[in-house]
Design a protein around this nucleic acid. Structure first.
Lengths: 251, 251
DNA sequence: CTAAATAAGTTGGACTGTACAACTAAGTAT
DNA sequence: ATACTTAGTTGTACAGTCCAACTTATTTAG
């Protein structure tokens, strides 16, 4: 909780004030970072931004996750802050956004004790990628990371995000958020395969998806150089569905 | 992330300093709270502390999760801070500790914009409950919460922790951390049943546990008024195992 | 000493969903 | 028309759970 009593060591306190209310002790820096995933060029990609090189800027020119300080005047809450960062870098408003965790320590930022609240977002593919921020760039995920070494502990955060994504994909309908509103089952399967980095069985995949009651066919077909495929869309507001068998299968 | 440039609205800034380095803007309060679970009296219980009623203390006399401010002088990182809170309230050092998420907003604490990093911990049962802090008390979990209304947004945090625990119990070996080092399979099954609040099949449970390669028999039996039961222990450092069937079962 | 009671642990058939592989269907290209 | 390609289906084998009955090991009551 937050018992204002229990204070003690105050060490190196330059960044504080608010006298009298028992809150006159140094506070860590508070930030929010967002791991933004999308499927591009048949691969899983992450959006990174290149850091500037102003005075006192740590990790100049390095790539980092989009993010920044919590703005206590602007941001109602952490999620709103994450949404703001996302909007600033991608122009997009409301994809799938989920909290990933927080990282905080005395050493992760040379400017002082800092804690970041990390989120991960899924962007629909193909959607004309929209106007990216000038300093933002997509990078393909390779293994558990990305080619450039990242600023701060962002490499670790990214690794965690990738693991979380892969893990959830094993037993949820999450990948549907990486596709546009209408998609075919082979397209959806391909997204699963890209994220998991392994092939899946066609018939088991279809059975599972169709029996999960989370997608519904639309009265259209995707045409190509061969047999057309049925288009589907997510049933509304069906939050990520869990597939895994557990002890007492429902029903 | 953390681009020191991107600052703007400064609103209501009393709690700051560090002039010149571009960090002269108000910072949120940073806290850590811990949801501590244990099996007691054949039920799932949570440890809560009663808040004091000093000057400026929000939610006087209310129950809250154990926690408090991050101490930038004492705490190396967030997990160390959580461990410290845990030790202060229970005297115990190293049970299972996992991050739950973070909650931050302008309104959750009347003292100002604050963000808490929530953890959840599992304590071994039976272990002579140790010397609890004076203001700490165990409460049985009922449904998705606990009888007393909690301070701050701790009710919501607790609810999330309970859901997470139940969810993970469905497909991991987590409950083993709620038992002492040596336990019988019926005891383990009982813990699963308490957490999930539903009965499980004996034979399926045994098959699953024994084939998961995470426990091993010790050369002892638990004696009682009937047939003795084999004692088991967790195989060392076997982090929580996942049981769920997925697309391509390993093997 | 035997019988009843109780909980530990095993066994086997029914059911369910995936794995695998072969098959059919519906288009385009030549 | 025929080959090619991808969409989608079908059927058998297999694995793990569900369920219920069964066996085993011990204590307690006569």
């Amino acid at each position: 909780m937050a018992d204002g009593q229990e204070r003690d060591s105050r060490g190196g306190g330059k960044e504080t004030a608010k006298g009298g209310s028992g809150l006159d002790f140094p506070r860590p820096l508070a930030m929010v970072d967002v791991v933004i995933f999308a499927i591009r060029a048949d691969a899983l990609q992450v959006l990174l931004v290149q850091r500037g090189a102003g005075a006192g800027e740590p990790f100049p020119h390095a790539f980092a996750l989009p993010g920044g300080f919590v703005d206590v005047g602007k941001d109602r809450d952490l999620e709103a802050c994450a949404m703001r960062k996302l909007r600033e870098k991608t122009g997009v408003a409301s994809p799938y956004l989920e909290q990933l965790g927080s990282w905080g320590s005395a050493t992760r930022d040379p400017r002082g004790w800092s804690a970041t609240h990390a989120y991960f977002a899924l962007m629909p593919a193909g959607g004309a990628s929209a106007p990216l921020a000038a300093d933002a760039q997509w990078f393909a995920v390779q293994g558990e990371g990305v080619k450039p070494r990242l600023a701060f502990d962002h490499g670790e955060i990214l690794k965690t995000a990738i693991q979380r994504l892969r893990n959830k994909v094993e037993y949820t309908s999450l990948p549907a958020y990486l596709l546009p509103a209408e998609f075919t089952l082979p397209e959806l399967q391909r997204v699963y395969e890209i994220v998991l980095d392994r092939p899946l069985e066609k018939s088991a995949f279809r059975t599972r998806m169709l029996s999960a009651d989370l997608i519904e066919p639309v009265a259209k077909m995707r045409r190509g150089p061969n047999r057309p495929a049925q288009l589907y869309r997510l049933k509304k507001a069906k939050a990520p569905v869990y597939f895994a068998r557990t002890f007492n299968p429902p029903g």
